[in-house]
């Protein structure tokens, strides 16, 4: 257990340089944007002359390290600057969106794994069968299909043609937060985007799980298990699947990073008010404070995803747990 601690602490210490690097990159990006992306107090559409005057006025021409330090300290306190377009704190603008995106992410992950685990297992166990070929065929289609086109098709069929799902928003207008109807409406709104995204992102995991299983099947210890008299189903359940699911846990972190990319398109297409939608909207509106903040939060999510992966892995793999 002691070692487990050491591992976790060491792993957490690694995120310090990661965070530093992320913040520096975002800071540099913000610096390169017109106006003042960190505070959002200057209209980016002003001409350079006027902009310069305003900067002087607001005291925004400090040396970069002071500005960086100010930005970081306020960001840690939850102050991400002002949205120039909406004239409100960026953090307020982001908060609701973040909650929406969070639930969309969770729903997508659930769908991803709900699909990937049975498909990957079937495909790996019966590899080179007709069933496997069909599943592999699906994954190839998934790899080749751009998410935004697929999402549009889904929206058109299930949203507009069949009318099974709402076509935009995250909840029916007028329902009261906390009521049962509200929750049902929320779920109803995120289902179609989550399914669309899940159907595409899952193909990675299916392929990965399939090859893990095919690999594990040929290991010597599987022969040992058979030689013990274990039935085929026990060999699969106790030995092959357990050992193949482990690397999938490690894959979880990358899954999160992948999701972020996917949500940007999907939220936009489904008009789902999440972070991805906000990101595109802010880019189009040249609302640079918000763009910067969203990028920062996306980066944070990726770093945390990788951290969670490693910790899960260390919990389930004794070879890491004990070292």
């Amino acid at each position: 257990m002691n070692h487990m601690w050491k591992f976790s602490v060491r792993r957490m210490l690694i995120i310090i340089p990661q965070l530093l690097l992320l913040s520096l990159l975002v800071f540099l990006m913000a610096q390169a944007m017109p106006g003042d992306a960190l505070t959002g107090q200057i209209n980016p559409d002003l001409d350079p002359q006027e902009m310069q005057e305003q900067r002087e006025e607001l005291g925004l021409n400090d040396p970069w390290h002071i500005k960086y330090a100010d930005w970081i300290t306020s960001a840690v306190r939850g102050d991400l600057g002002q949205s120039f377009q909406f004239k409100m704190p960026a953090s307020e603008l982001i908060w609701n969106r973040m909650v929406n995106s969070f639930w969309l992410g969770v729903a997508t992950l659930i769908i991803t794994y709900l699909l990937a685990i049975p498909l990957g297992i079937t495909s790996g166990r019966f590899n080179d069968s007709l069933l496997d070929s069909s599943i592999t065929g699906y994954t190839y289609i998934g790899f080749a299909t751009p998410i935004f086109i697929f999402a549009l098709v889904m929206l058109w069929i299930f949203g507009y043609q069949l009318g099974w799902f709402p076509t935009s928003g995250s909840v029916a207008p007028g329902s009261d937060p906390g009521t049962f109807e509200y929750i049902v409406s929320k779920i109803n709104h995120l289902l179609l985007p989550a399914i669309s995204l899940g159907l595409i992102t899952t193909v990675n995991t299916v392929q990965y799980l399939r090859s893990e299983i095919i690999d594990t099947k040929q290991k010597d210890f599987i022969i040992t298990a058979r030689a013990k008299g274990a039935s085929e189903s026990r060999v699969y359940n106790r030995h092959i699947f357990r050992n193949s699911l482990l690397p999938i846990a490690a894959f979880f972190g990358f899954e999160i990073t992948g999701l972020i990319g996917g949500t940007v398109f999907v939220e936009r297409i489904f008009g789902y008010p999440g972070m991805g939608d906000l990101f595109i909207q802010s880019v189009l509106l040249r609302d640079y404070t918000v763009v910067t903040s969203v990028v920062l939060l996306f980066g944070l999510a990726s770093i945390l995803g990788a951290l969670i992966s490693d910790i899960i892995l260390s919990l389930v793999d004794p070879r890491i747990r004990i070292k």
């Binding site: 290991k219 010597d220 210890f221 022969i223 298990a225 030995h239 357990r242 050992n243 482990l246 793999d317």
Partner: peptide, 9 residues
């Protein structure tokens, strides 16, 4: 091969 004959997990 005793190194691979046992389930590592």
């Amino acid at each position: 091969d005793p190194l691979t004959a046992l389930n590592p997990l």
